[in-house]
Amino acid sequence: MESIQKTMKAWRLEKMGGKLELKEIPIPEVRAGSVLVKVAVSGLVSYLKSYTEGQLAVYNPPPHEFTMGSNAIGYVEAVGQDVWHLKPGQRVVLSSHITARENVKSPMMILLGITKNGDTALLAQLDWPDGTLAPYVLAPAETLTPLDGLEQYTDVQLSAVTRFVVPYGGLLKGQLAAGETIVINGATGSFGSAAVFLSVAMGSSKIIITGRNKTMLAEVAQKAGPRVVPVVLKGNPQEDALAIKDACGGGADMAFDMVGNAKDPNSTLAALFSLVPGGRLIIMGSMAVDLPVPYTYVMINSWSIIGNFMYPKDATRKMLELVKSGQLPIDVIEPQVFRMAELHQAMDAAASAGNLQNIMIDCQS
């Protein structure tokens, strides 16, 4: 620790809806099982401004002032005891998804610098309250994945990895197999469009992308290639399901639902009704209403409806192999970088960013 300064400026939030300011705080010291990371860039989620303003009641931030920020690209600065593979100077991607290490039936879970999965996860959040909108962050060793073998990419380019890994977790949960047909509902959103390119990389024979914005669907299809077929939804589940099935050539093996804050369930139901018998629906979006499940249809067709949150610990490592092989083109995501002092402008940009844009903070500026 003698080689670096003892304090740093970090974006600290008093509470959701409380004071947000760039404050001088101590650089954290490593402890057993932890890694101190020098943060290069930290990507911003689209809802960060609403979060800071206290508009998202479903989130559970730390009960005291904390440093915001979630996923990041950085470099190992120092490691604590019980960290054996990661070395100082190594470039890593940091995942905000932290799950308790203990071998228990229901491990507590938090998102670093954002929220916790219910009050039972308070202990985990108190141990790891601070996120990545700072020059240095302390994180559990298991949240870091080495970026060895990717030297041709800049830190800014590699930040796109954090965009892809969330939908990749859902595709893994749904056991998407090469040669299958998949429907991606909400394909014009940031995570939905990422799922399109992932499905191509994972070998889907046909990817049907759905939404209501014809222009944005066409843009994603044009960039993702000939296996991608857009279907513009009209709002009637039965009619839309027929249009999707026609585009599939009979029906889909899997539907991946990544709708953002939908006010009705119609597009999700259309995706469900488009499945072949034995098909599965993966739910990963943020629909604002309940999903009325047609009990008899689900039973007769042997459909599986599977909810999924985030991704397993090894998902980033597996996905990086798709990047290294050239199957997953992370450069389709357009980066826009702001300085540390420009967080407010960056949050505005993130809130209005297009589905193929990635807003981030240069944490060393």
Rank of each mutant, 00 (worst) to 15 (best):
residue 151 E to C: 00
residue 274 S to W: 03
residue 291 L to F: 12
residue 42 S to A: 15
residue 149 G to M: 07
residue 115 T to R: 04
residue 324 K to R: 15
residue 129 P to L: 09
residue 274 S to Q: 10
residue 360 M to G: 00
residue 347 M to T: 12
residue 344 H to F: 04
residue 197 F to Y: 13
residue 311 Y to F: 14
residue 73 I to V: 15
residue 57 A to V: 03
residue 185 N to I: 14
residue 99 T to P: 04
residue 184 I to N: 01
residue 295 Y to L: 04
residue 145 T to M: 05
residue 307 G to R: 03
residue 302 S to I: 03
residue 359 I to V: 13
residue 251 G to W: 04
residue 170 G to M: 11
residue 211 G to V: 12
residue 26 P to R: 09
residue 68 M to R: 10
residue 73 I to P: 05
residue 249 G to K: 14
residue 225 G to I: 02
residue 358 N to G: 06
residue 298 V to T: 13
residue 9 K to I: 02
residue 304 S to T: 14
residue 27 I to R: 13
residue 199 S to M: 02
residue 350 A to P: 00
residue 338 F to M: 07
residue 338 F to G: 02
residue 159 S to T: 13
residue 163 R to P: 00
residue 146 P to I: 06
residue 285 G to V: 03
residue 75 Y to Q: 11
residue 165 V to Q: 13
residue 26 P to F: 13
residue 214 K to L: 00
residue 302 S to A: 14
residue 278 G to N: 05
residue 125 Q to D: 10
residue 278 G to L: 07
residue 21 E to L: 11
residue 107 P to K: 07
residue 168 Y to R: 02
residue 295 Y to M: 14
residue 20 L to T: 07
residue 154 T to L: 10
residue 278 G to K: 08
residue 156 V to Q: 11
residue 224 A to K: 10
residue 209 I to W: 05
residue 306 I to M: 12
residue 226 P to V: 13
residue 281 L to I: 00
residue 277 P to H: 02
residue 332 V to M: 02
residue 173 K to P: 01
residue 218 A to S: 15
residue 153 Y to F: 15
residue 232 V to N: 00
residue 238 Q to C: 12
residue 251 G to H: 03
residue 112 L to Q: 00
residue 232 V to E: 15
residue 333 I to Y: 03
residue 343 L to W: 06
residue 318 K to M: 14
residue 340 M to K: 13
residue 351 A to R: 08
residue 181 T to F: 01
residue 199 S to G: 04
residue 91 R to Y: 01
residue 35 V to A: 11
residue 275 L to A: 03
residue 170 G to F: 11
residue 98 I to D: 02
residue 8 M to H: 08
residue 23 K to M: 12
residue 126 L to Q: 12
